[in-house]
Lab assay of single mutants.
Amino acid sequence: RKEMTAACTPRRRIINLTSVLSLQEEINEQGHEVLREMLHNHSFVGCVNPQWALAQHQTKLYLLNTTKLSEELFYQILIYDFANFGVLRLSEPAPLFDLAMLALDSPESGWTEEDGPKEGLAEYIVEFLKKKAEMLADYFSLEIDEEGNLIGLPLLIDNYVPPLEGLPIFILRLATEVNWDEEKECFESLSKECAMFYSIRKQYISEESTLSGQQSEVPGSIPNSWKWTVEHIVYKALRSHILPPKHFTEDGNILQLANLPDLYKVFERC
């Protein structure tokens, strides 16, 4: 597991931080080997919608929660590849102030007048994250320049770009939802926020969305749709870069829909 690298990086740093090793061990302890084997050997059937997909393993048909699986995938990559990410360069710098204002204007932020003026909160978020810029760049390849612009994001899987519609809320939550006081809790909560931002979430995906850094293989055609990215990038990574937690067998994120021999018997009677 320590050699797990989802995106190509030129050289690998050895990380011996106790906090990170502890988080890696927790993933191992909570892992479910049968689910790992199923995901490793599954045959992708198709997307139901951005949140759900169908896959077959041996004779069984499964309904998989793409949102939760991708979130767990990105969390584990962030923990196992800690401080070893490439950088996704933004085509132009994104001012943190503008991103924070967009987030505060969104109902998702939960902002009320009692929280104070949005401009003041946005300025605080910019200054707060600028103070964390060195650590964010060093460990997470999340790059913020001296003017308070976001200029780079971590490359977690080759050819995958997170849904940038979720970027404003991500920046807001970096400042408000991460435990910045304790090292282990900081790395864990920061990785979880980043994983949620990178995950496939239906509120940020339309039929026209593209999450891939590449064009489709047909010359002159439109960019790959999110469905292509889910199948050929995300579920491909799920084959080798995730140890599913045991609770996925109990919380409805992986559901067995049918045993195909039983279905064949039904059709034979028709």
Score class of each variant (00 low, 15 high):
E143S: 10
R36S: 15
F187P: 02
T18C: 06
H232R: 08
L150E: 01
S216D: 15
H42P: 00
H42D: 00
C194H: 05
M4L: 08
E231A: 03
L96I: 13
Q215I: 08
E165A: 10
S225D: 13
E165R: 10
R201I: 00
Y75R: 14
A103W: 03
L156F: 01
L164H: 05
A237D: 02
I233N: 06
F44H: 02
E143K: 13
R201M: 00
R11G: 07
V87H: 09
L64S: 02
V161C: 14
G110K: 13
S106M: 13
C270W: 09
Q214A: 11
P93N: 06
P154C: 00
A103P: 00
P107A: 10
I233F: 03
P219A: 13
C47L: 09
E26D: 11
R173C: 03
P168R: 03
Q24E: 05
I222C: 11
E108V: 09
L190G: 02
P50I: 11
Y198T: 00
D158V: 11
L255T: 13
G31K: 06
G220V: 13
L69C: 03
E134A: 07
L90Y: 02
C270Y: 12
A83P: 04
V87T: 14
E29P: 02
E193R: 03
Y124W: 08
D115A: 08
P93K: 07
S19I: 01
Y264I: 10
M4Y: 14
S191H: 02
L238F: 09
F140K: 02
F85D: 00
R239E: 02
F197M: 07
V234H: 00
E127W: 08
H40M: 11
F44L: 04
N41A: 10
K246N: 12
N149S: 09
L63V: 04
A237I: 03
T176H: 10
L104F: 12
E268F: 04
A103L: 02
T176G: 05
E127S: 09
V230W: 00
F197R: 02
E146M: 09
I151G: 07
M196W: 04
D98G: 10
K130M: 10
P107Q: 13
Y160Q: 01
L129S: 02
T112K: 15
R13T: 06
G116D: 13
T66A: 02
E108N: 09
Q203P: 06
V87S: 15
G213A: 14
P163H: 07
L35P: 03
V266C: 15
Q76M: 02
Q215D: 15
M196E: 12
I169C: 10
C194F: 12
D158L: 10
S216H: 09
Y80P: 00
F82M: 05
D105S: 13
W111R: 07
S221N: 14
H247Q: 12
P244G: 01
Q76V: 01
L150C: 05
L260P: 10
S22Y: 11
E182I: 14
K130P: 04
Y198Q: 01
E3F: 12
Q215E: 15
D145L: 01
D181P: 04
K265R: 15
W226I: 03
G148H: 05
P50G: 07
K2L: 11
P245Y: 01
K131G: 13
S212Q: 15
I15C: 14
P245G: 10
K184W: 04
I15E: 04
G252K: 06
Q30D: 08
I15W: 04
L255F: 06
I169N: 14
C194R: 01
G46P: 00
S22M: 09
V234K: 01
L153Y: 03
Q76G: 00
P10G: 05
A100C: 09
S109R: 07
V87R: 10
E33S: 12
H42T: 06
N159R: 10
Y204K: 03
H57N: 08
I151E: 09
L238I: 10
A122Y: 02
R1F: 13
E182C: 14
L243W: 13
Y62L: 13
L104T: 04
S189I: 05
G220K: 12
E268H: 05
F197T: 02
D98S: 12
S19Q: 03
E165T: 12
M101H: 07
F44Q: 01
I125F: 13
Y235L: 02
E183R: 02
R173N: 07
S240Q: 13
T18N: 09
E72Y: 06
K132V: 03
V266L: 13
E123P: 04
I233L: 09
I157C: 04
T59N: 14
Q215F: 06
R36Q: 13
P93L: 04
Y62R: 00
F170K: 01
E33G: 14
F82E: 00
E147V: 14
L153V: 11
E134G: 11
G116Q: 08
F140S: 03
G110I: 13
A103V: 03
I14D: 11
L64R: 01
V48T: 04
E114L: 10
E26K: 09
Q214F: 08
A7S: 08
C8M: 14
E177A: 07
V161K: 06
S240H: 14
S91Q: 14
Y198L: 03
T210P: 07
P107T: 13
Q56A: 15
W226G: 00
E119Y: 09
E29A: 11
R239G: 04
E217F: 09
M38W: 03
S106V: 09
T176N: 14
P168N: 04
I144R: 01
W111H: 12
E147P: 08
F267L: 15
V218L: 13
Y264W: 10
P244V: 05
R201N: 06
I222W: 14
I79C: 08
E92R: 06
E72N: 05
F170Y: 04
V230M: 04
G31M: 06
V20S: 02
E250P: 04
V161T: 14
W52I: 14
E92S: 11
W228A: 11
E183Q: 05
H241D: 07
G166Q: 03
T176R: 14
S216N: 08
W52S: 02
K236R: 09
V161L: 10
Y80K: 11
E146A: 10
L102E: 14
S199P: 01
I27W: 00
S189L: 10
K192V: 06
G110E: 12
R1H: 14
C270R: 15
L174I: 12
Y235H: 03
L155V: 14
M4N: 08
I242L: 12
A100F: 04
L23N: 00
D98A: 07
P107C: 10
R12H: 15
S43E: 08
A83C: 04
F82N: 03
T18M: 08
I151V: 13
M38K: 03
W52K: 01
P168L: 01
E217K: 11
E123M: 14
E134C: 09
I242S: 02
L238H: 01
R89A: 15
E231F: 01
L174M: 12
E113G: 09
A94N: 15
L23G: 02
A6K: 04
R201V: 02
L129G: 01
L21I: 10
R173T: 02
Y204W: 10
R201S: 03
K60R: 12
I144A: 03
F97Q: 08
E146I: 13
L63C: 05
N65M: 01
Y264V: 11
G46K: 15
